[in-house]
């Protein structure tokens, strides 16, 4: 696994897991319609952490109902269903209200994709400094390593999140921008919710 900091790319020759296949299938449809960046736990798994997960969190850029509807029809045709509602307007109303909507393969509940709009300014920044992970079977856009570490260490803070942060730090310690983590830390520590 090689990280090119300047290009903001990680090249991995890993064997694709069933979870990676699920992610690649979903984002191949998603990116036809909406810009996205994957956040949270799946990133550390994609980068080698030996644990499982129920969901894959993703930010999508804010879009209209019409644009969302095109994506929703496409994803349903590909065999996914929304766990929160059936009707397009109802599903869209949830995400528009700042809530997350989940998609899984038909007949299954996990793994699922947890899709949401960025709420805060710091969330919007996820689209500015994302990294592309290049696998043998496709590309996946993930949030920057510094954002991952800052959110997990100073906002989420569960044992699992701290362990995810340690994994990423240990793996890329020569390339991580610790000043950036400290700046993000100051912001995430002010988040209330």
């Amino acid at each position: 696994m090689k990280y090119n900091k300047e290009k903001r790319e990680i090249i991995s020759d890993k064997e694709i897991s069933e979870l990676d296949k699920f992610v690649l299938e979903f984002i191949t449809i998603l990116e036809k319609h909406i810009d996205y960046v994957i956040i949270s736990g799946y990133i550390s798994i994609l980068l080698g952490r030996a644990r499982a997960t129920e969901d894959v969190d993703v930010f999508i850029k804010k879009i209209s109902l019409e644009k969302f509807s095109e994506f929703y029809e496409d994803v349903k045709r590909a065999g996914f269903w929304c766990l929160n509602a059936e009707k397009t307007k109802e599903v869209f109303s949830y995400i528009e209200d700042g809530l997350a909507i989940r998609f899984a393969k038909q007949g299954q509940a996990i793994p699922n994709f947890e899709v949401k709009f960025p709420k805060r300014q710091i969330d919007e920044g996820t689209f500015e400094d994302f990294i592309t992970v290049i696998l043998s079977q496709g590309k996946i856009k993930i949030s920057s390593l510094e954002r991952q570490i800052a959110f997990k260490r100073y906002y989420l803070k569960s044992d699992k999140d701290i362990e995810d942060a340690v994994h990423i730090e240990e793996l890329f310690k020569e390339d991580i921008d610790y000043d950036k983590i400290n700046k993000l830390k100051q912001i995430v520590e002010t988040i209330e919710d």
Partner: peptide, 16 residues
């Protein structure tokens, strides 16, 4: 990458 991911996938694929 192939070597470590083969082991990691035992954990991940067993859940799925």
């Amino acid at each position: 990458d192939k070597e470590w991911s083969r082991q990691q996938n035992i954990v991940i694929n067993s859940q799925i």
